[in-house]
Design a protein around this nucleic acid. Structure first.
Lengths: 349, 349
DNA sequence: GTGAAAGCGCTAACAT
DNA sequence: ATGTTAGCGCTTTCAC
């Protein structure tokens, strides 16, 4: 292994000079810099990460905690993770991948060991047990040397109480409102919402409730009738749910779907029942772009901006690490793309 | 931050004793051990990762390179990544998440900096440019101090030339054979294969070709007629492909699908055409379990054993790191699960 | 603009 | 069974 000292010797300068050439933290004469860079290349030198971390007490690593559960929105999670990794690299950071298997202990371990300089948490629950460890100001009763040893962190998702936390998420309330508005403009008066599986609501992940809130509020304002039904994924569950919906509200002409695994079954069932999309019924989906464009009907949808969320999270974190403050909560504005699944409501006799 | 020295002082022992209590590398009297452990808990001590890495020249980190492309098998990738992360933790390793954006440079950077002790590469291409850096024996022409400074590594996926490499993958050849056998047993004589998008074949990722090889070989042995058609995802592409298939081979009664985004369209189209599954045609899918069980027809399928692959990769790597040799190539045996999409071939007039 | 030198917190000989 | 000590490779004062 090539060390900094070897580079220094080879270039005929001191170790500190090499270090400063690398960090740019003090001015170096052009000739010296060139000699050093030359030696670095020739010897194939790579600074040792451990030594760096020890001497500088910064690891240049950001920890990313992803959910173990692989039952929901997996492609979105993956896309976020990849965006985070790529974004982090542009700022010189690497990503340490943590699952939430260890729970809060992982936070302590990483914080305590200095393995990472900061962390990003995905899939935060409303009352997440990891949050107390991350709130700025630290745990109550901790009043050590005055040094704030909290881990700078950014959450992807919105917990119930965001005080002292930085969060990035899609504005699901606005998303719900947007879907309702679109259908209202097309003349639909009876709207059914196919929601996530009941388990998702019970898990209190927040986004489902916020979407529903946005849907309901806007529906009330626009005087639309809204029926919400959670739904397990799959064909059979969707069939049962759909039957109930048309039973209770036979005049339903608009659907909002927030459940990836209900989308294709819904479309198939509507086809089977002879209800044409979008002539008889309109469907708006809240889902990844890819799902919307690859469905059997190209879906009007609000996309989950995975890349953007990942990028934002990194930007926020880097800002924090650089001492610059950052916003508490960033809610990304939803964008609705009109495709082939929505059209004017059919005229009623 | 609490240091080892502070723990030592608090427990009234020397630094090395604390270190050895932690590592278990030499015997410690019960009383001393207890005092030390007590102090560790009381002070909330966490060993500093950087210092550890520097002193021991082992980071206890495994790098995992995942593909940037998020167009294929994303849930599988994610599941593997999570399995790798979880598996690594049980051996005391953390996972560093690398994308293949940097290409081979990422390998050099991680190897050179000692950031990771080893690496796992996913989605390896047949002639991957990162492979030369990973082959045991190192790059030709490198004859330094006799120390093998290669990064121990495991590939998930199979390149063209596996010499000097450790690989884990599903046995796709056997998978293809298994699908054909199943259909043959049910009496199907004309089989159509819906393959991945042409781009996948062109990218030379290997698994698609190996599956096809297994399909063809076994079909020939069993004297079945086999028609293979690559297919872009989505409804329209599938419709065109299906039309061509029935045009060329009207007697086709068996389908093998190796393309997630073609599955649901295929089922919908068959329904539309009045071909009942499994009464008129049978469908075998090569896809994740979840897709098979959530499709509009519960699919007979060969699963992609994501978790198993992740776990295996870690085991192999840990074996290597522990100095124990490991197998060159581990091919996991495919398992076919019979569900509702396959049945006896219809009797021909 | 450059060098010298003191650690950073830990591990692993080498002692006893 | 425990203590002493010399680094690991780098960053960063302090000195010129």
């Amino acid at each position: 292994m090539v060390t900094l000292a070897e580079v220094a010797q080879h270039a005929g300068v001191s170790a500190s000079t090499v270090s400063y050439v690398l960090s740019g933290k003090r001015s170096i004469s052009a000739t010296t810099r060139q000699r050093v860079e030359e030696s670095i290349r020739k010897l194939g030198y790579h600074p040792n990460a451990g030594a760096r971390a020890l001497a500088s007490s910064r690891s240049n690593i950001i920890a990313l905690m992803i959910p173990l559960r692989t039952d929901m929105y997996v492609p979105v999670m993956m896309e976020i993770a990849i965006a985070v990794a790529a974004g982090a690299r542009t700022h010189g950071y690497d990503i340490l991948l943590l699952t939430d298997e260890e729970g809060p202990d992982a936070v302590r371990r990483v914080t305590g060991s200095g393995l990472a300089d900061a962390m990003i948490l995905m899939d935060v629950e409303l009352d997440d047990e990891r949050l107390p460890l991350l709130r700025e100001g630290g745990s109550p009763g901790r009043a050590r040397s005055g040094v704030a040893d909290d881990q700078p962190s950014v959450l992807i998702g919105l917990p119930a109480d965001t005080t002292g936390l930085t969060c990035v998420d899609l504005d699901f309330r606005a998303t719900g409102a947007l879907c309702v508005e679109h259908l209202a403009e097309l003349g639909h008066r009876d709207i059914a919402v196919i929601g996530e599986a009941p388990a998702v609501y019970e898990r209190h992940t927040g986004f489902a409730e916020r979407t529903l809130d946005g849907l309901r509020t806007r529906a009330r304002e626009l005087k639309l009738r809204l029926l919400h039904r959670p739904c397990e994924g799959g064909y059979d569950a969707m069939a049962a749910t759909l039957a109930r919906i048309f039973d209770e509200r036979p005049d339903t002409t608009g659907f909002v779907v927030q459940n990836e695994s209900a989308i294709e079954p819904l479309l198939a069932l509507l086809r089977q029942q002879g209800r044409a999309v979008p002539e008889d019924v309109s469907v708006v989906a809240i889902c990844p772009e890819q799902v919307a464009t690859q469905a059997s009907v190209r879906l009007t949808s609000v996309a989950l901006p995975a890349q953007e969320m990942g990028r934002h999270a990194v930007e926020q974190l880097v800002a924090k690490l650089g001492g610059r403050g950052s916003d508490e909560v960033v809610l990304l504005a939803p964008e609705l793309t009109v495709r082939a699944s929505t059209g004017p409501a059919p005229v009623r006799p």
